[in-house]
């Protein structure tokens, strides 16, 4: 008995210190149990790793890193173009020439962000239900709500990285491209909280819609195709229909352009219209309505997603 206890304590000490795997055979565990909090963190961590393909083969890494690379490249190109203009034409040339900046980034990148969410988010939910691993989660100290909130948070963090990284690249590029970087920072430091808030709105919206869609199928491909179709089809359809209808119904039809919903919030935060929303009839409904509509389309699907998993049993 004494020997067993000693061996357990040794394993605990060494294991905690170095993470080394000891081959001492099965034995009773007398160490710390961290409960529900650890369970949530474990599901979150696994979701984060799955989304970025960590710990998996090269194929699993291709798609997420391709999209993150493309988004970063857009930020980099914008920074190079604006920086070159400022260097050649003097400070403020890019702004005066109307070259795209932070407020325009999401209007360019939104469709790529939607496709990224459509392709990657289902990987966090569909295989667990297809392989019925979910039944093993739900018999542990974890509720259905814990599971889905942890998975949602994991993908939200990935999305935040995808939306903020290019903006930071752009900000760094614009600062360094300006002949007087300090003056640029003084004049434009408010862009940082603005793009952080705008990016968070974009990430929360796309994450929630993508996760909700993934919760209805066990096949990742079905969820991805449906989501891409939803974003790509609703845009031209609602734009065309709003132009046809005109009158007071036009702006409301325009509100159903799912691609524009978070971009309208971006416009409200930056106080100016983006490339893709400047002609949108929905803008006539006012900022409060556009923000409320955004929350409806984020919190509503979020509530449905939570409700679906709350009542799930293996």
């Amino acid at each position: 008995m004494t020997e067993t206890v000693a061996r357990t304590e040794d394993a605990l000490d060494y294991g905690a210190a170095s993470g080394t795997v000891f081959d001492i055979g099965y034995q009773r565990y007398a160490g710390r149990r961290e409960g529900r909090g650890r369970s949530r963190v474990a599901v979150f961590k696994d979701g984060f790793r799955t989304a970025l393909g960590f710990g998996r083969g090269a194929r699993a890494k291709v798609l997420p890193w391709f999209f993150i690379g493309v988004l970063s490249a857009i930020g980099l190109v914008m920074a190079i173009v604006a920086g070159a203009a400022n260097r050649l034409g003097g400070p403020g040339t890019a702004e005066r020439a109307g070259l795209p900046s932070h407020s325009d980034f999401y209007s360019f990148a939104s469709i790529i962000l939607f496709v990224f969410a459509a392709v990657v988010a289902p990987e966090l939910l569909c295989p667990d239900r297809r392989n019925r691993v979910i039944s093993l989660y739900l018999v542990r100290p974890l509720s259905g709500s814990d599971y889905i909130l942890s998975r949602w948070a994991a993908f939200l963090v990935v999305m935040l990285a995808a939306v903020w990284l290019p903006q930071f690249i752009l900000f760094f590029g614009l600062s360094m491209g300006d002949p007087d970087p300090v003056a640029y920072l003084r004049a434009h430091w408010l862009d940082i909280p603005r793009f952080l808030a705008s990016g968070a709105a974009m990430a929360a919206y796309t994450t929630t819609l993508a996760m909700l869609t993934a919760s209805f199928t066990t096949r990742r491909a079905y969820a991805s195709v449906f989501l891409v179709g939803l974003f790509i089809i609703t845009a031209p359809f609602t734009v065309g229909l709003a132009e046809e209808i005109k009158g007071p119904a036009g702006p409301w039809v325009s509100m159903f352009n799912l691609t524009n919903i978070p971009v309208h919030v971006n416009d409200v935060i930056f106080g100016e219209a983006s490339e893709i929303t400047e002609d949108a009839p929905a803008r006539t409904l006012g900022s409060a309505m556009l923000v409320a509509w955004y929350f409806l389309w984020t919190l509503g699907p979020g509530a449905v997603l939570w409700w679906r998993y709350r009542r799930l049993s293996p």
Binding site: A11, G19, Y26, R38, S39, V41
Partner: peptide, 18 residues
């Protein structure tokens, strides 16, 4: 699965091997 059951990560790895 050991981590989801509440075990710290280092111990979870050791327990999985055992």
């Amino acid at each position: 699965m050991a981590e989801v059951s509440g075990l710290p990560p280092a111990m979870a790895r050791t327990r999985a091997a055992d």
